[in-house]
Amino acid sequence: MLINAIRAENLKSRHSNMWVAVAVLPLLTAAIGAIIYGINASVSLYDGDMWQQLWLQTGLFYGYFFFPILIAICASFLWRLEHINHNWNCLMTTPIPQSVIFIAKLVVLAKSIFTAQALLMIFIIIVGKVGFRFEQPIPIGMLWWLFMGWFSALGVAAVQLYLSMKIRSFAVPVGLAVCLCIAGLACYITGLGSMFPYSQLILGLSSQEKTLPIDSLTTLVPMVVFYIVFFILLASRRLKKIDIVAG
């Protein structure tokens, strides 16, 4: 059942402009990171871990804003499909549990987030190897960052997917994401990072510092899982309760 629904969602997202966003935002991020790194490198002779340095500069805007906004855009794209051309009618008259409908979309969103993460990683490697000719070996820790960044973003994905399901507009949930990012930043600074999805994401991405403390991990992982489950339940409850209005 779930597998079938995911396969259907995969097909729906084919040729979607969502993938343009998934490719462009990491590219933009890597470009900005490269410029900042370039400016800094020309004034100070840094001789530590070059990769980590480049990585830190790149990750700054990405974690605080670009990444959550990309997730919001993808979530809006995924639901826009259903909000237009009366697709709600068709979707809700298929014999599929409401939760499965939401989970299938969450899986596709998770896939696109992972793609964005992987692309950014590749772009960073290109910038380091080709742009700045780093001699140091590519740190294997990048894979850990790739995974943790992806995983810790899933809470945000669940929230945004819920918002975009509920709100017919494409832009409003993205705007809300910007506000929530600021709240996330505040939580992160005050040390409540693992409690709030938008700061969980910052925390997860900061595993580039090789120092994501293990006690932070033990609260982060259950909290991410909590938000995922919570919003799946919320979404499925909503779909069971409301009158479907197709547009």
Binding site: I84, N85, H86, N87
Partner: peptide, 8 residues
């Protein structure tokens, strides 16, 4: 119902 559903 009402109008056909489709992914354009």
């Amino acid at each position: 119902i009402e109008s056909p559903s489709y992914y354009g």
